[in-house]
Nucleic acid binder design. Structure first.
Lengths: 408, 408
DNA sequence: CGACTAAGTTAGCGCCATAATTTAACATCG
DNA sequence: CGATGTTAAATTATGGCGCTAACTTAGTCG
């Protein structure tokens, strides 16, 4: 409805972006291969790569002899061109990790949070500390850091000020970037929901590689999803799309902590599973303050206890129906299952989940979809956050910090 | 992951498309206004519009005097440049309508189908007949028809051959375009799901105008939805996205005609509503072979019968929960409710639907969404189908039939 | 009737991608 | 062991495109 904007030398930017992305994802390539893979003419590839080499974004990486003929010179993104930081702001702690452009981890720190409901000020302080610590530990200069990606629990609203809303931990309109600026952080910041950054990591380096339409499903204490449509993380109108955990799956059913009834999370989230088990045993459940240990105990008990096995079978049923809803609505080519509870369940119940999905999804879209386990685990939130500044670099086809080409 | 393709004079095409779309949607505009609205320079606007005028796509449409200064010349898309046909292939009949480029209906025919489960061959024959009839009735030449949009029940798979799958009426991989070609139809064909074309109509001319993220929800005999993300109808990996009617809303609940249990359609589809009413009265329901009449009777009965009122209240509850799922997953800025049953319910139960939606959706995305009734009604399927060739024209920035500019 | 104002057009410039051509670096063969 | 062929990469020539800036056109107003 509003097809605005012009197009002039964005063309050059677009081609820089295309070539840079190809090199980043598909390793070292010769100019000739680049030309074939992108459809750009050899001349343009030469031209643009020369520019990228001059900008130090890419470097030559050895030659490959051909069967008679000039050997091709391989090009790749220079891992040392810049660094990126990924931060996982969780409910219990703040993880800060520093990577080079090849996404090799150079330093990492992990700060536990004292309070149960994390205070924004404490999170900001630990984040700023961690940022300084990893930069020092890795022995890099601050100016070499391209940007800082931050995965947060809750939704990120991008307006005049970027605000974080996290209903479950009581954050309402927390201006995290502004608060970090006040702590003296001057680096470019990229915020997104933690589930979305984890999904991004899985798409770039994990089970999602190669798919253009995928949903990364995360089952943990909470239940969430990252939806990728046409290669892009789907955000919706106000960046709160993909709230899979709070879709109604049992109308009028169990109370969820979000206030509604019958949410998927109330059945398939760790708390919901454990509570259903407790109820099934007439009040006596697995006793453990740590949800992860409790769920592990429940899974172990399934070998001998019929009740435990039934509760977990039912869980697979709910998860499968939830996945079927995603398939019916988004029609993805791949579903990737992750999250700590998802991983724990996946080992034995993946087939049951698939059966339930098949029972609840329409035949045609179901047959187009593969369901797989994730490859990266919950640590991927920080990696995924770190991909945000890299994605900005790739999209802009060059360093977004130096707006137009300063070195003419 | 695969950022391919090149960009050369697609730039010109892009700008032609931008200007043409602006003129199409936002009525007559002067060159100056176009320049401001699109961000293109005045020179480029002059240049491109001159080309469009030469191609007879746009024409001058009077002047507007300004307060001192040269009066602006208004430009608009020439309605007579070409015609388009929209076809609504329904379960009971085939509607064929012919429009000019301003989407004014010039002719229409409606062929009833004899069989209950429509035979593809019969549909194709009636479609081909209708097409010839409207062209004759409108007194236009076949060569002036830009293309034919067809809305079909079921999903459209676009591969080497375009195939139609409609589980409910027993169509499995019906090659509709090929069959129409065999009937002597040579015009460009555009197929899509009927719900999606109706959604498109609502987005262009109805309650969806101006929204970039919206879901058009259709409640009738079946239950479906058209999802618009970022201004585009969302299709997914194999064009079967948006199957809202078969998402699970009551795990383990009522049997649905798709074979699964607890689908939204089994509760909120007309058949589901009537059957629930029948059950609530111990077997005695509204007796009528015509679903529309039966539902109207049920709605009328709600004034006096507590049972009828309760069944319809519950229906609003289910629909609301289903809409909440759409809001949580897609985070649209607008929900538009349509379909014949949706329209019938909407008059009295819209508030109840909204309450249920509020109860089941997360607060933040719910507050960003407005829920409205559709403006066009079920007749819009054909109009929406007719927009498909128009959309192709606008996207290409000119007549796609004459591939590159033949008149140099 | 000439100054003023706004719309629209023309001229010149720089940028960019393609195609054709040239240079470079090998392998193989007679 | 140099001539020849082959493939990769760089260079040059060419044409298209949109932008800026100057200019023309067409009205109104004093």
């Amino acid at each position: 409805m509003e097809p605005k904007r012009t197009t002039v030398r964005d063309l050059r930017r677009h081609n820089r972006s295309t070539l840079l992305s190809k090199l980043f994802f598909d390793g070292p390539l010769s100019r000739h291969e680049l030309s074939q893979l992108t459809g750009l003419s050899a001349a343009t590839v030469s031209n643009v790569t020369a520019e990228l080499v001059e900008d130090r974004l890419i470097v030559e990486a050895g030659l490959v002899e051909s069967d008679g003929g000039r050997p091709r010179v391989l090009l790749r993104v220079d891992p040392k061109y810049a660094h990126v930081v990924g931060i996982d702001v969780g409910e219990t702690g703040v993880k800060v990790e520093l990577f080079d452009l090849a996404m090799t981890r150079l330093a990492a720190v992990d700060h536990q949070l004292n309070s149960v409901e994390p205070d924004p000020a404490e999170v900001v302080a630990r984040t700023a500390d961690g940022l300084r610590e990893v930069i020092e530990a890795a022995g890099v200069t601050e100016s070499s850091v391209l940007g800082v990606g931050i995965g947060v629990p809750g939704t990120v609203e991008k307006g005049t000020r970027t605000l974080v809303h996290a209903q479950t931990i009581g954050w309402d309109a927390v201006p995290l970037p502004t608060m970090l600026r006040d702590q003296g952080i001057r680096l470019p910041l990229f915020l997104d929901n933690g589930a979305k950054t984890q999904g991004q990591a899985e798409m770039w380096f994990g089970a999602g590689r190669g798919a253009r339409h995928a949903v990364i499903v995360l089952v943990g204490s909470g239940v969430g999803a990252a939806v990728i449509t046409d290669g892009q993380t789907y955000a919706g109108y106000s960046s709160s799309a993909g709230e899979w955990g709070h879709t109604t799956i049992v109308y009028g059913g169990r109370q969820c902590r979000c206030g509604a009834r019958g949410c998927l999370e109330a059945y398939a989230g760790a708390e919901g599973i454990l509570d259903r088990y407790r109820k099934a045993r007439g009040g006596r459940g697995v006793v453990d303050t740590d949800e992860q240990a409790a769920l592990a105990a429940l899974i172990a008990a399934a070998d001998t206890s019929k009740t435990a096995a039934r509760v977990l079978d039912e869980t697979a049923g709910y998860v499968g129906a939830g996945i079927a809803n995603l398939i019916n609505l988004f029609n993805p080519e791949r579903i990737v299952m992750g999250g700590w509870a998802g991983l724990a369940l996946g080992e034995q119940w993946l087939e049951a989940v698939k059966r339930s999905t098949a029972d609840h999804a329409l035949r045609h879209p179901y047959e187009q979809t593969s369901i797989e386990m994730c490859k990266l685990g919950p640590d991927a939130v920080a990696v995924g956050a770190a991909t945000l500044p890299v994605a900005a670099l790739l999209d802009a086809g060059g360093d977004p910090r130096e707006s137009p080409r300063s070195v003419a």
